[in-house]
């Protein structure tokens, strides 16, 4: 409830920012009557109104909720509920961020090995020889599939300089 309220306020800020961004769009007379900024501004207003409506609705529900049953609806079993779990979920994004930063330097094969090892460890696998084998073989397999078979020019990193 409170989170929804906060998010709807953030959405309102997003709407304001979007409007300001739309105002920056250069207006050309080639853009027709509505203009290049017409639809973005309309959307900014729509989001502004909707987010305020949601904030109001949530606010009244919160007040009514305090009087009646305070509990949120029961979530399904495997859905994360507390802040500790949310932080764990964000950790995956951090890992992904490291991968993106390392990829151009270490090259695709090595980065994918690290990523496979890192994510499987993060998802609960105990470090073991098996994990190492999984990461190394996995990295090679991914390299073969995406770079060799599919021919996607994923970054090769520092490796070409060594040879």
């Amino acid at each position: 409830m409170r989170a929804t309220f906060i998010v709807s306020c953030l959405l309102f800020l997003l709407a304001v920012a979007y409007w300001l961004g739309a105002d920056q769009i250069s207006v050309s007379r080639l853009a027709g009557g509505v203009g290049a900024d017409g639809m973005p501004k309309l959307l900014a207003v729509a989001l502004g109104v909707l987010s305020l409506a949601l904030a109001t609705q949530t606010f009244f529900q919160m007040r009514a909720g305090k009087l009646a049953a305070p509990a949120d609806p029961v979530k399904e079993g495997d859905e994360p509920t507390n802040w500790h779990q949310h932080a764990r979920a964000m950790g995956l994004i951090v890992l992904g961020g490291f991968y993106i930063l390392l990829l151009p330097h270490l090259g695709y094969m090595l980065s994918s090995m690290l990523m496979l090892g890192g994510v499987s460890f993060y998802a609960g696998l105990k470090p073991s020889l098996r994990m190492l084998v999984f990461a190394v073989i996995g990295g090679v397999v991914y390299y073969l599939i995406f770079t060799r078979i599919l021919g996607i020019p994923l970054p090769s990193g520092f490796w070409p300089r060594l040879f």
């Binding site: 993106i100 990523m115 496979l116 890192g118 996607i152």
Partner: peptide
Amino acid sequence: TACIMMVVLSG
């Protein structure tokens, strides 16, 4: 989980 994440970050 690791394999899916890698597929997403490759394709």
